[in-house]
């Protein structure tokens, strides 16, 4: 009897520890590749480098960073970029996915073509887009520089000054370079978003659409009351993807505008690169990285709350 109880107790302990043991490899990997860099970044944000080594400086890096003009400017630029990038990519992606969902002839071929931008590195896309509009020497510079099309002196995308802001110092309307950056970034992100939405659209039964049409619903009504609600969880996933890439990606800015002209496209991710790898202010760069992580969490959390996607998908 006692022997039986002991065995049962041992078995129960094993049952409890087995899941932990099974999870251990994954936990170790997570600790090494995710938690360690995250905690190291937080630690680094509280340090400053001196010839003798690292020294704890409290919140100095945050204070110094917040007091720079470029930090404040980069917040405005990030908002403008993010809104433009998300709105343009999501709406174009939805339109393209809807067109491809109508069983066009050669739709497979169009899909293959559409996928090309996604296969290119963003840094390469930025370089190509930059070459197109170099003043005087770019392929498109002749067209853009035509005063008849862009009065009074034509448009030089990479060097044109930003228009006077409408709302205090908030950078709106954006500089032509920012608009161009949004276009280039959307061009690259479009295939993925389109495919994501197309896959979701293909799950909607045609019978529902047909029934709605018989009941007299027009295209806009169908989109608004049937299609969008049914693909809403996918739209939110697409939105998360765009928020994260929009806030964090630096390759396109690096190769297309390098933050310019002046500081007109200095978004937070580029400021982070600049602080870390151009100014070698690793402490301040880490402080900005922590802030950006908080921004990402806030945006994702806010989006989940507003869309209540967790409840809808539950």
């Amino acid at each position: 009897m006692i022997k039986g109880l002991t065995i049962r107790r041992k078995q129960s302990r094993t049952d409890q520890s087995l899941p932990i043991l099974l999870l251990l490899p994954a936990l170790i990997v997570l600790l090494v590749v995710q938690f360690f860099p995250a905690f190291y970044t937080i630690w680094l944000s509280l340090q400053e480098r001196f010839p003798t080594g690292w020294q704890f400086v409290g919140l100095d890096n945050y204070r110094l960073l917040v007091n720079t003009s470029l930090f404040k400017e980069s917040i405005g630029h990030t908002i403008v970029f993010l809104v433009g990038y998300i709105v343009l990519t999501l709406s174009l992606g939805f339109v393209l996915a809807s067109i491809l969902n109508t069983r066009l002839r050669l739709s497979g071929f169009y899909l293959a073509l559409l996928f090309i931008p996604w296969t290119l590195a963003d840094i390469l896309v930025g370089m190509v887009f930059r070459l197109l509009v170099y003043p005087d020497y770019g392929i498109l510079s002749g067209i853009l520089g035509n005063p008849a099309l862009f009065p009074p002196k034509g448009l030089s995308v990479l060097t044109a000054a930003r228009p006077a802001p409408l709302f205090g110092s908030f950078p709106f309307p954006p500089a032509p370079a920012m608009v161009y950056l949004i276009l280039a970034s959307s061009w690259r992100a479009l295939p993925f978003i389109t495919l994501l939405l197309l896959a979701s659209l293909q799950t909607i039964s045609q019978e529902i659409i047909e029934s709605a049409r018989i009941d007299g619903a027009n295209t806009w009504g169908i989109a608004r009351h049937i299609t969008i609600p049914l693909i809403f969880p996918t739209l939110v996933v697409a939105l998360f993807n765009l928020i994260l890439t929009g806030v964090n990606s630096v390759g396109m800015v690096f190769s297309l505008t390098a933050g310019g002209p002046g500081t007109a496209t200095f978004v937070m991710s580029y400021l982070l690169y600049n602080l870390g790898w151009e100014r070698l202010r690793f402490g301040q760069a880490a402080a900005l990285a922590v802030m950006m992580a908080l921004v990402n969490w806030a945006l994702i959390g806010g989006t989940m709350r507003v869309t209540r996607v967790d409840e809808r998908t539950a």
């Binding site: 170099y134 003043p135 005087d136 020497y137 030089s156 990479l158 390098a258």
Partner: peptide, 13 residues
């Protein structure tokens, strides 16, 4: 020239 301000050493052109 305008290319003076374009960056990427394009001003050399």
């Amino acid at each position: 020239p305008e290319v003076t301000f374009a960056g990427g050493f394009q001003e050399e052109e």
